[in-house]
Simulated scan of single mutants.
Amino acid sequence: MNDNVTLRVDGREWGGWTSVRIGAGIERLARDFSVEITREWPGSDGTKSLQPRIKNSAKVEVLIGADLVITGWVEATPVRYDAGSISTGISGRSLTADLIDCAADPRQLNGRSLVQVATTLAAPFGIDVINSGAPTGSIPSVQPDHGETVLEVLNKILGKQQALAYDDPRGRLVIGGIGSTRATTALVLGQNIISCDTEKSIRERFSTYQVSGQRSGNDDDFGAATTTALRAKTEDAGISRYRPMAVQQTGQATGASCIARAEFEARQRAARTDETTYTVWGWRQGDGTLWQPNQRVIVFDPVCGFDNREMLISEVTFTKDNNGTRAELRIGPPDAYLPEPKDPKKRKKSSAEDPF
């Protein structure tokens, strides 16, 4: 199968790259790419032909074979040389990169859904928003602070809405949930896995998580002018020594929301311990499709303790250089990427203490 990488700019295609790196993931808002050609020095009449003919700020489509993988902007055209060779390159990011870098329009948005808020914020940049199973509930109020980027505004509400934000190959902003599709090929030690890298770290895990919050009183709390303090606690059975963590819940808290936040912290941090990066040959699965982020994949790796365990691909990096054509897949339990729960009242019960 043809897996040559092509850059399409203004209807013209550029290829022949000797080094390629393309990255995409669910914990980033913009895919990125970098390509490079390295040659020996030509004769004096050939130096001009090595200068980049693709300019910064050009709109670009990046393709692997016939598959579109990035629609974005050229952001750099590096040149490097020494006594023996010269290399020229092109790098850039998805159209959604502007949502990471640029300030949001500081307008008040009331009573809109997450997709509606994202659509309004992305509209000035000409970026479309795709609903991939996003929650439909309305958000009472969203007000970007002065100088706050679109990504920073989205991050404040994504957790509470239990949704992810990432981009797709057409440079659109996708709002959706975890594990939208399944990989057709498993990751199996001794078959397609050629290397593994994992820390199995517990640095960010704690034995107990205590969440505190406040809410305004009501008629049952002796009038709206009173303030009730709330506190909830849960434990991580995998941490045996004393390591407490205290979290202050912002906004109008309830006993249920404090419990849910404590459980969320424990579950997500424990799941991060199993994050692993695998390297496989090639960029495609057994059915010919490219590896994709946000796919669920079966992993068999007795060395790391995975016995046909379903994991989530959080990031895919395609590389090509002198060492061959490879894909790096960062995987983890789905809980590692769970946003903060939307409806804590439906979650299982944890130990909660009475208000102070």
Rank of each mutant, 00 (worst) to 15 (best):
V153F: 07
V153H: 10
L154V: 11
K156F: 12
I157Y: 08
I157P: 04
K160D: 08
K160S: 07
Q162K: 08
Q162G: 05
A163C: 04
L164T: 05
L164R: 04
L164S: 04
Y166T: 09
D167R: 09
D168Q: 02
R170M: 01
G171M: 01
G171D: 02
R172F: 03
V174L: 03
I175R: 10
G176Y: 05
G179N: 04
S180F: 04
A186E: 04
L187K: 02
L187E: 01
I193S: 06
I193H: 00
I194P: 02
S195V: 00
S195P: 02
S195E: 00
S195Q: 01
D197V: 05
T198P: 09
E199F: 14
S201D: 08
I202G: 14
I202P: 12
R203P: 10
E204P: 12
R205S: 04
R205M: 04
S207H: 10
Y209K: 12
Y209C: 08
Y209H: 12
V211K: 13
S212C: 12
Q214H: 15
R215L: 07
G223Q: 08
T226C: 07
A229D: 14
A229C: 13
L230D: 06
L230G: 06
R231D: 09
A232M: 09
D236E: 06
A237K: 15
G238W: 10
R241I: 10
Y242G: 11
P244C: 06
M245H: 07
M245L: 07
V247I: 08
V247L: 05
V247K: 13
Q249E: 10
Q249Y: 15
T250R: 15
T250A: 15
G251M: 05
Q252L: 13
Q252W: 14
